[in-house]
């Protein structure tokens, strides 16, 4: 099932991506609506993080492309923000909470310059939104897991984007953090922001999100949660891998085989006028 939204925030077109030469996403193709809370849901190893990293330009796909608000990432970079998994950094770094949140204000335009009063105000406000202002001067090495997560979200808020991509923000956090994130999400939705969240827990996915993408190395479904949450589709997403598909993937990694034949050219490039 692949339902197309009216106003598109993200368009993923025929995306194929591999990790260490092994394909983890096969011809993913879907579009996500603006102004909604969207969950990318699937079992472990289903390529959720890889999909997000491709959307953020942190990985180059083997084929296909991602458009954000109908444009290429570089044209709308300031409108897009990203919250990585908190384990991706070493928290034993000499910095305090405010330092990290202020990193959300670093721009190409303020290289060589000091941050302004306005930048500091925005960072303070972002910390307030995740209930972390009392910890502004705390060393980041002293934070609990949930507090680390909230600091990362505050840093992302400080970027003042329209589209937020978050990688597993609910993993390993305490009840206070979960509540704080949920409140924040509903507020962001009210402000018309689009939030895409990678999430592995089916139980809560239906509760948290408006729109759900079911992923298991291939696209199983994308649409409003009421449509997507059917026993049949869930079973397809969680009922194990397609054996032949993963054997093909293993073979391609072993043989150093290309994902696309070199003379094969896709007719439509990124950012073209096809949609209009």
């Amino acid at each position: 099932m692949d339902i197309r939204p009216e106003k598109t925030a993200i368009e993923v077109h025929n995306l194929t991506a591999s990790y260490n030469r092994k394909p983890v996403l096969w011809d993913i193709d879907f579009s996500l609506p603006q102004g909604q809370l969207i969950g990318i849901v699937g079992p472990n190893g289903s390529g959720k993080t890889t999909l997000l990293r491709n959307m953020m330009g942190l990985m180059k796909p083997d084929s296909g492309y991602v458009n954000l608000f109908g444009k290429k990432l570089d044209e709308v970079r300031e409108k897009v923000s990203y919250v990585p998994q908190r384990e991706t950094v070493d928290w034993d770094f000499p910095a305090n909470v405010m330092d990290v949140v202020l990193m959300g204000r670093y721009r190409k335009s303020n290289i060589f310059k000091r941050l302004s009063k306005k930048d500091r105000d925005i960072a303070t406000e972002s910390l307030e939104k995740v209930n972390m202002l009392p910890f502004a001067n705390r060393q980041i090495s002293q934070l609990s897991g949930g507090q680390q997560q909230r600091v990362f979200i505050a840093r992302s808020l400080a970027q003042q984007a329209d589209l937020y991509l978050m990688d597993e923000p609910f993993v390993g956090v305490d009840a206070a953090t979960e509540e704080s994130i949920l409140n924040l999400l509903s507020e962001m939705k009210k402000e018309g922001k689009t939030v895409v969240i990678v999430h592995h827990d089916l139980q809560t996915a239906y509760e948290y999100f408006d729109w759900i993408v079911l992923l298991n190395t291939r696209l199983v479904a994308s649409g409003p949660k009421q449509e997507v949450f059917s026993t049949e589709l869930l079973q397809e997403a969680y009922g194990g891998r397609l054996t032949v598909l993963s054997r093909i993937g293993d073979l391609m990694a072993k043989q150093d085989f290309p994902m696309r034949e070199s003379e094969f050219k896709e007719k439509e490039g990124p950012g073209d006028e096809r949609a209009s």
């Binding site: 953020m56 897009v80 923000s81 990585p84 991706t88 990193m103 190409k108």
Partner: peptide, 18 residues
């Protein structure tokens, strides 16, 4: 400040357009 971010979280520097 750029070196600080690069040392702490280089990928975030990249997505910030630095």
């Amino acid at each position: 400040k750029e070196f600080k971010l690069l040392s702490f979280n280089a990928e975030f520097a990249k997505i910030s357009g630095l």
